[in-house]
Simulated scan of single mutants.
Amino acid sequence: MMKNTVFIGLIAATAIALAGGTAFARGDRGGAPIDFETLDTNGDGQITLEEMQARGAARIASADTDSDGFLSLEELEAAASERAKTSASQMLERLDANADGKLSAEELEKPGRADRRFNRADADGDGAITRAEFDAAVAKMREHRDGRKGSK
C-alpha cells in the first residue's frame, strides 16, 4: 500500500511539474531555481530520495486544496495557472525595458536572435531555407530538447 501511495504521489508530482515547469529548475511557484540547501532539508550536505519525496509531497499537498488526498483536474489547473501567472509577471518585470507594463515585439526578441536562428537553419548560407534545411533544423532542435530532458 505504501508503494502505491508513493507511486501515486510521484505521478501527481510529475503532472504538476509538466503543467508548470520542472521542479528542479524552478521554485514552487515558477520562480527562482531551487537551491541545494532548500532540498537538503536536514542540512547534512546530501539530498536523499526521502527529501525529494517530501518536497514532492509538500507540492502535492499545497495543490490539494480540498485535502482529499487527490488532485482533481480543477486543482491541477489552478496550480498550473498560479505558476503561469507568476512566470508571466517575472517575464514582464525582466523584459519590460521601458517599464510601460507591456512587452513589445522588440522587447521580447533578443537582439540578433532571429538572425542567428535563420543562419543556423540556412545550412548552405544562400540566404534561403529549403524544406530539407528546415526539416534538419527542426530535427536538431528536437534532438537538443530531448537531450536536455534526458539529462534532468
Rank of each mutant, 00 (worst) to 15 (best):
87 S>E: 12
152 K>D: 08
143 E>C: 02
91 M>K: 13
84 A>M: 13
125 G>T: 06
108 L>R: 11
64 D>L: 08
122 D>H: 03
67 S>K: 10
80 A>S: 14
118 F>E: 13
60 I>F: 05
151 S>V: 05
71 L>V: 04
15 A>M: 09
1 M>P: 04
98 N>T: 05
31 G>L: 11
144 H>S: 08
147 G>Q: 04
18 L>G: 07
133 E>F: 00
129 I>T: 06
46 Q>C: 05
106 E>V: 04
130 T>M: 10
137 A>Q: 07
67 S>P: 01
114 A>P: 00
44 D>N: 15
117 R>C: 01
111 P>Q: 10
96 D>A: 12
62 S>V: 09
22 T>A: 10
104 S>L: 07
102 K>E: 10
134 F>R: 09
73 L>R: 10
109 E>A: 07
111 P>W: 06
117 R>G: 01
9 G>K: 01
108 L>K: 07
57 A>N: 04
13 A>L: 09
86 T>F: 02
128 A>E: 08
95 L>D: 03
2 M>Q: 08
5 T>L: 11
51 E>N: 09
27 G>S: 12
14 T>E: 08
92 L>F: 15
51 E>I: 05
59 R>F: 00
68 D>A: 07
62 S>L: 09
131 R>K: 09
25 A>P: 08
142 R>N: 12
92 L>R: 07
126 D>I: 10
28 D>R: 14
134 F>C: 07
27 G>Y: 13
39 L>D: 14
127 G>T: 06
18 L>P: 01
7 F>S: 00
101 G>C: 02
16 I>A: 11
141 M>L: 14
16 I>W: 02
149 K>Q: 09
106 E>G: 02
92 L>V: 11
54 A>W: 02
130 T>C: 05
127 G>N: 06
59 R>G: 12
9 G>C: 02
136 A>Y: 03
25 A>H: 15
135 D>I: 11
151 S>M: 13
86 T>V: 15
23 A>P: 15
67 S>L: 06
126 D>Y: 02
43 G>F: 06
69 G>Q: 05
90 Q>A: 13
113 R>Q: 11
97 A>T: 10
20 G>D: 06
6 V>S: 03
